[in-house]
Nucleic acid binder design. Structure first.
Lengths: 126, 126
DNA sequence: CGGGATCCAGTAGGATACTG
DNA sequence: CAGTATCCTACTGGATCCCG
């Protein structure tokens, strides 16, 4: 899917939806945000992120590591200690992520009201 | 943007992944971008967005309309004409979207190389 | 032209048990 | 503690046919 040399931002909309499709899953962003302040260990993250299973935490961490968004450090000891920390690439992502967060906060009510209106109008139409 | 007081945005990380989960699907962003310049009609969009089926275009447009991101105008005529245009809410979203687009462009190579490295190391480990 | 109604495959995500 | 291995369900997305 490697296009030619990227022209402008708007023309590269495919790249955007690629990124969004990648980080738009259920847990990735929550993990990134949880690691924003400081590195954390596995079960530390598991406790921090309400509702995530070991399975999904493992998968999400692996994908983020694969993309170079975080670094995994194993401290050989018993019991084993594994620390996850955002890489500089991972931190650079949280910048535009926060922009989106502010948009979400600013317009969440508008979206919610629109949905209520739309659903009501759909009911009347039946 | 004001990010001096951190908890406001950071604490609302759930809202972010909600938004990302919503627009992080396969087509939503591409539709928004396709409507960024000017309003378009159904089959116009279908031609513009390579690979989308009527089904998915219909679904995507409906969800965007439900969220108040676009306005649907029916011109009664034969054959019927339906025009889709971004609402101000929809246009406001493309702002943070472009931030993300620039991040994608700036770091796409880094991500790709990281994946290649990671996959190679996984092969060696087996 | 602009959809609606179906059917179907693939994958994301969840629960649980087990391991080094 | 930090995972791996299974199994299962639900939802996303695609193809097709039909209708006003």
């Amino acid at each position: 899917m490697d296009m030619t040399s990227p022209p402008a931002a708007a023309a590269d909309c495919l790249g955007v939806s690629e990124v969004l499709g990648r980080i738009g899953d259920k847990w990735t962003v929550q993990v990134v945000v949880a690691l924003h302040d400081r590195p954390r260990r596995f079960n530390d993250l598991k406790r921090e992120i309400a509702g995530i299973s070991q399975q999904m935490l493992t998968r999400t961490l692996k994908l983020l590591e694969r993309d170079g968004m975080l670094e995994r450090t194993v401290h050989p000891s018993a019991p084993p200690q594994v620390e996850y920390a955002l890489s500089s690439l991972g931190r650079s992502l949280s910048q535009p992520l926060m922009q989106l967060a502010e948009w979400a906060i600013a317009h969440r009510d508008a979206v919610h009201e629109s949905r209520v209106r739309y659903d009501a109008s759909q009911l009347r139409a039946r």
